[in-house]
Design a protein around this nucleic acid. Structure first.
Lengths: 254, 254
DNA sequence: CCATGTGAACCTTTTCACAGCG
DNA sequence: CGCTGTGAAAAGGTTCACATGG
């Protein structure tokens, strides 16, 4: 930490916009890469390019966190990594359970991006008795019967559901009853949860359908030509700035 | 198709908002479920509940497609399924290739939600020679060398990247050069592509980080109590309406 | 009489453009 | 003098509330 962890009296008022929160992990990833290459500082322009957004947006986002840059120079990489990590709550340890160890569950269990971000896979849970005891990614799979005790014993507050759609709501209910308050849902279902519980969903099929929509437009353009067919040009995917930010994720039953 | 495919003179002007497009797959899923239960019609209220959004939003969304409902009654399920499918371009066949057949790639290959939505896995591609010929989900894995010919021979315009981060850009370049114009990226990297190519990303780690942020707030609330700590109550996750809609997805290297 | 379809109000997010600081 | 930080404007999306039509 170059600038030292001054902890800042935090001019930062509360209420960081959701859209900004959703981009912080992007900046963090880009900053981590710079940090590994021992780059000391970055300008908003450079960092924005690395994160795939435009610089005005990035500066505005950072302004919600506080004034962490130096005019005429840029941002101190290490310091920003620290500030964003702290803001996202990644400086603490988050035990996570993954329920449903099919192809997807296994993929998630093996994902390396967890540990490096403060997430720890506390347990893998599956309803199939035949899976019990089998190690996946070095962690023995436990039976669903153990779900409640696992959650409680490990103080788990984040659960990942990678079960088939039919089992998702039931698993969700049990996770919530046992104390989980944040759920990442990969099953293609709408989960209903009580107030105070956060749900985010990832649905692959949805992402593909959105791509298909735009793909279809591209094809139609040549045909419809003439008149006002330009329109799609509005979607200037300018080589950067991906992550349309305003989206719905994608799913996957195991 | 109850109402028959009248094809409608389409009062519908062009330019459906991105946010609406992102929700169409959600409605489609809910409608498909209703269709399977042979439900003939739904009100905006019912369908909205099933899709996890509020009814005003749903009606506004549908208004961009045209007037497909009947006042005092609701929407014809079969007819809407058809209209939305057509709008999304799902009435045609979309051959897709998946590059990177690790845990995640295999999970995707096995995902059933594809075929039922007009997507067809045309080929599985991996750089590991040892994988070549091995069947995954009934489809033999082919070596990366074949990538260009596979794309061309099958007229593939949508590619899924499930490789490690380091290989993603290179794979992306080859896909684009071979003719792919839509990419779903699971690797935790920002891909740069020429104009006209669409990229969507899915990043698991990002989703978890967003959950962690809110989780941290919840914990802080009790401590910070007193003063103005309410604020998070604004996030009324009212048992439905998940999918904060304004987000950034999550990734996964194989 | 009911539920759709939609203008209008409202809120969020993005973009602009430049003052101000290092 | 360059780059950050930020008001103000613009764009985009959501919610309200009700006229409209089956």
């Amino acid at each position: 930490m170059a600038t030292g962890r001054t902890h800042r009296p935090a001019t930062r008022s509360r209420g960081i916009p959701e859209a900004t929160v959703a981009r912080l992990p992007l900046y963090l990833r880009a900053l981590t890469a710079l940090s590994e290459r021992s780059v000391p500082t970055v300008s908003s322009e450079e960092l924005a390019a690395a994160a795939g957004v435009n610089s005005a947006k990035l500066r505005k986002d950072f302004s919600y966190l506080g004034s962490y840059g130096t005019r005429g120079v840029g941002y101190d990489v290490e310091y920003l990594v620290y500030q964003i990590s702290r803001e996202l709550g990644l400086t603490q340890d988050w035990p996570v359970v993954i329920v449903g160890i099919g192809n997807l569950g296994a993929a998630l269990a093996n994902y390396g991006g967890f540990a490096s971000r403060g997430f720890r896979v506390a347990a893998l849970i599956d309803a199939d008795p035949a899976m019990a005891g089998k190690p996946v990614a070095g962690i023995p799979v436990q039976h669903t019967d153990e779900l409640e005790s696992i959650i409680r014993d490990n103080g788990v507050s984040i659960g990942v559901i990678a079960t088939p759609a039919g089992a998702a709501q039931q698993v969700c209910d049990r996770l919530v009853a046992a104390g989980v308050t944040s759920i990442l849902n990969f099953a293609p279902t709408v989960l209903s949860v009580p107030d105070g519980v956060d749900v985010r969903k990832v649905d692959l099929s949805i992402e593909l359908q959105i791509l298909a929509f735009h793909e279809q437009r591209k094809a139609g353009e040549e045909a419809t030509a003439g008149a006002a067919a330009v329109q799609a040009a509005a979607r200037e995917e300018t080589s950067t700035d991906q992550g349309p930010d305003g989206d719905v994720p994608a799913v996957m039953p195991a």
